[in-house]
Amino acid sequence: MVAKIIEGKHFGGCVGYVLKDRSEIIHAEGLRTTSARTITQDFNLQRKLNPRLGKAVGHIVLSWSEHDKGKLTNRLMAGVALEYLKSLDIDNTQYLMVRHHDRKHDHVHIVYNRVDNQGKTIANSNLRFRSVKLCKQLNSKYGFYQASGKEKVNRGRLKGADKAKYEIHDALKTALRACGDWKQLESYLKYKGVAIQYKKKANSDEVQGVSFSKSGYTFKGSEVDRSLSYGKIDRLFNGQEVQQSAETDTNLTNHQAIGISPMGLAMDAMVSLLDIGIAHDQDDDAIKRKNRNRR
């Protein structure tokens, strides 16, 4: 289970969206659920207790993996959603829980009022950070499937900055299997449409950081992934040799899993063959020198 957290200003649009076709209300508190209109009216009535709060609409989407499909009942999903809200101190307020059936994976939309029953604002400080930690705890408690790493993200549904960020991530992870230094990395990423910018120390050529750009979006290496900071990539280049020939089969499998194009595979293969060829030439030179010494 993972959570997506959104905040907004208008209950009408949010309620109208979550109550679309192939949806069902599985739980509600403090609301008349006769129609989208009555739900919106009730949300807005309580909102007037704190009119200065601009973004009073809390909207959270809890999504489960397809692996959990057989165990997810309305009662279980509502119970987990209630536990999730309470653990984040989102209580003593109105909320609506709607299950959608329009995707392969089950998910519940939670709409809640950030103006609580006493007119106080429900805080959102560090909400996303706390949510990530809580989802891991709930997955462990209920035995829900949890995907590991960025490789499990559905790339096809990403847009804008998120899409660019994951394209950079995938290109870097693939490149680091084949490249042995920064120049090789620059060339490979240029082929993938990714540009590199280095951050240097003032009045010096000493590199302190690196950023990557694609489709008009720029991210620090550590923002793409903690393993992709300048320091960690540089240590990889300086401390480990690329064992390309031994990893070829594994790399091909990984490339296919993350959707690398046939041209990209061809380029990786060329790099691999070049490395192998250099190694063979070095071995041949060593043998010739050894034979000359024997004479």
Rank of each mutant, 00 (worst) to 15 (best):
L273A: 15
Y112C: 11
K55P: 00
L96N: 09
R32F: 08
I276K: 14
K192N: 12
G16T: 01
N251H: 09
G79I: 00
S35G: 07
N113R: 08
K190M: 09
L96G: 13
S227A: 14
G58K: 04
I6H: 13
K199S: 15
G264I: 01
Y198A: 14
R114V: 01
A175Q: 02
R155V: 07
A257I: 01
Q208A: 04
S261T: 09
Y112A: 06
C135R: 02
Y230M: 02
L96S: 12
N293C: 09
S211H: 08
V271G: 05
L273M: 12
K141M: 02
E241N: 11
Q137H: 03
I26S: 07
N251G: 05
A178N: 13
G259V: 01
I260G: 04
V108W: 06
W182S: 12
D91E: 13
L138N: 04
I90F: 07
R52W: 06
R22I: 02
H169C: 02
A286Y: 07
A266E: 14
H105W: 04
S261C: 01
S272C: 13
V98M: 10
A56R: 14
G149Y: 10
I39V: 13
H280A: 09
R295L: 11
L274R: 13
K133V: 09
G264L: 02
S23H: 11
S272N: 13
H59C: 11
M1R: 04
S65T: 03
D284P: 00
C14Q: 09
T250G: 08
G143N: 07
A175T: 01
S35I: 01
Y145A: 15
L45P: 00
K69R: 14
G58V: 02
I5Q: 12
